[in-house]
Nucleic acid binder design. Structure first.
Length: 535
DNA sequence: TTAGGGTTTG
């Protein structure tokens, strides 16, 4: 006789709304963090953390959580995070209900952002998490977005003259903790207001001197005080941080704003260390990748050749790539964190010689509004299949130009026609018509053909993260041979590689390449078969 | 046991 395998014991947890908790009960609750303080040592034997939860029942519940181990306290990074508490004991303190962690207490924490993954932060080795839980988290996020007033989660570029306090997600670029208690941080955006810089003559900054120098103008100095000193001293350069309740002080008569993290824990003042793969860290990384020309600060770059298609070459860890002297060739496997541009129109602009306007290709009609006609259209039919084709020949400034120096927009033409036109005209820009607008083709088509040179792609930035050793790398190059977003990559050029951060990450998207990719995708030609498979 | 949110004064 064979018995069916025992299914794991499953308890059906009941979660009650915050307005139904009563003194003396031990409850399971979900809630959105309205306020919290980072755990600090108590005068007893434990760490403790205080927080306030809210939920759509319109109640709020203050909680005090103790633990000898930081891991067992909820890992909250910002107001709006969602928590699930099991076995929270409800008691009364000064007439208010209060939650404390009783025996068997456990916590899951979720990022509050709508678009973040529903992966709990927890030290629990096993926990139950069902589709119902997932649904609750999503609902609470939506509710919080509409109903919860979070503190200013501005970026450096958003700081205004009247901004007084700020919660900042940033990366630690450097620190000085022997004389001052100084954190030099950046978030990938440029502060528009003048920020006070600490005079560091005679002090030694802990950090990469080249990076500090190349990011001058983007980084800001934050002075920290008193109880934050020990935290500041233990921070690793390169770590992602959330600085809670920075005071932006504008001394009277001064135009220069000072950034202070004062002593005490009022309003949750303190420092959180974020994992490099947290939603907020990634946001920080993205902002940095969007900096004009600043994706790869000088001094953090080395130059190597990266191969992803040659399967007979063993894959090399990004950390090893960075530690070796160029020129070398490697194959890598890594997680794609970010890419730019999202559309060709972000990189290619057309110039109208008639009115001297610059047009973004996706907005070609705006050029058509200029007083003088800026192109002349010639149309013809292909035979098989029968199809209307057009060449919009861009007119020069009154002067007659030889065809080989003319630029044309080729609409609806075949590959054969493109070849033919490219032999006759100086520049051929393949376009198509969508909703009566001329737009550029996608990345599978060259954006411009100059004689024998078929230019695919544009200045292209790819940001990778690798689990081990958890290094983030940005690739940037001209004429990147990529045909489609979200398809397979064939990297076989020289890229600038910069060490941008450290810390292990979790995968959202993996780019895998293989021999088939190499067969299907060749550089500079037309792909024989276009794979629509997403990765 | 501990602490129990509500701005430094550099």
């Amino acid at each position: 006789l064979q018995l069916p395998p025992l299914s794991p014991l499953r308890l059906d947890y009941v979660y009650i709304p915050l307005n139904e908790v009563k003194e003396g009960l031990t409850v399971n609750v979900y809630g959105v963090v309205k306020f919290f303080k980072q755990p600090v040592p108590s005068k007893g034997t434990d760490f403790y953390s205080t927080l306030t939860l809210v939920d759509p029942s319109a109640a709020r519940l203050h909680c005090v959580l103790f633990s000898g181990s930081l891991d067992l306290l909820p890992q909250i990074y910002k107001v709006g995070d969602v928590v699930r508490f099991h076995r929270l004991k409800i008691q009364c303190y000064e007439g208010d209900l209060q939650g404390v962690n009783g025996p068997g207490f456990s916590a899951l924490t979720f990022d509050g952002a709508l678009e973040a993954g529903v992966t709990p932060r927890t030290a629990s080795k096993s926990y139950q998490f069902t589709s119902t839980d997932r649904k609750i988290v999503r609902e609470l996020r939506s509710w919080a977005k509409a109903n919860l007033l979070a503190p200013d989660t501005l970026r450096l570029k958003d700081i205004q003259q009247n901004t007084k306090y700020l919660d900042l997600t940033c990366q630690l670029l450097a620190k000085e903790t022997d004389g001052y208690l100084l954190l030099q941080v950046w978030d990938g955006t440029k502060c528009q207001r003048p920020i006070w810089q600490v005079n560091l003559d005679g002090y030694k900054l802990d950090g990469d001197a080249n990076a500090i120098e190349s990011l001058r103008g983007l980084s800001v100095d934050v002075l920290v005080y008193d109880n934050h000193a020990s935290t500041a001293s233990s921070l690793q350069v390169g770590a992602y941080l959330r600085l809670h309740n920075i005071h932006l002080k504008l001394p009277e008569g001064s135009e220069v704003t000072e950034l202070h993290l004062h002593g005490g824990t009022s309003y949750g003042r303190g420092v959180s260390v974020l994992p490099a793969d947290s939603h907020d860290s990634k946001r920080c990384i993205k902002a940095r990748a969007a900096l004009p020309g600043g994706i790869c600060p000088e001094g953090w770059c080395v130059c190597v050749t990266v191969l992803t298609a040659h399967q007979h070459i063993a894959a090399t860890a990004l950390g090893a790539v960075l530690s070796q002297e160029p020129p070398c060739k490697y194959r890598i496997r890594a997680q794609l964190m970010d890419f730019q541009p999202r559309g060709l129109h972000q990189s290619v602009k057309l110039h109208c010689p008639a009115c001297q306007a610059w047009g973004v290709p996706d907005l070609l009609p705006s050029l058509a509004l200029c007083p003088a006609p800026w192109y002349q259209t010639v149309t013809w039919h292909s035979l098989s299949p029968e199809k209307l084709m057009a060449a919009h020949i861009v007119l020069a400034n009154g002067e007659e130009e030889a065809p080989e120096s003319k630029a044309i927009l080729a609409e609806g033409v075949t590959v054969r026609e493109l070849h033919r036109l490219s032999r006759r005209f100086g520049s051929v820009i393949p376009v198509c018509r969508r909703s009566e607008q001329l737009t550029l083709m996608d990345c599978s088509v060259p954006f411009v053909i100059e004689g024998r040179k078929w230019h695919y792609g544009v200045f292209f930035i790819l940001t990778f993260l690798q689990y081990d050793p958890g290094i983030l790398v940005t690739f940037a190059d001209w004429d990147f041979p990529l045909y489609k977003y979200n398809t397979k990559l064939h990297l076989c050029s020289t890229f600038h590689i910069g060490r941008m951060s450290q810390g292990a990450g979790e995968s959202d998207i993996w780019i895998r390449t293989g021999v088939r990719d190499r067969a299907e995708w060749s550089v500079g030609g037309w792909p024989k078969a276009q794979s629509k498979r997403r990765v």
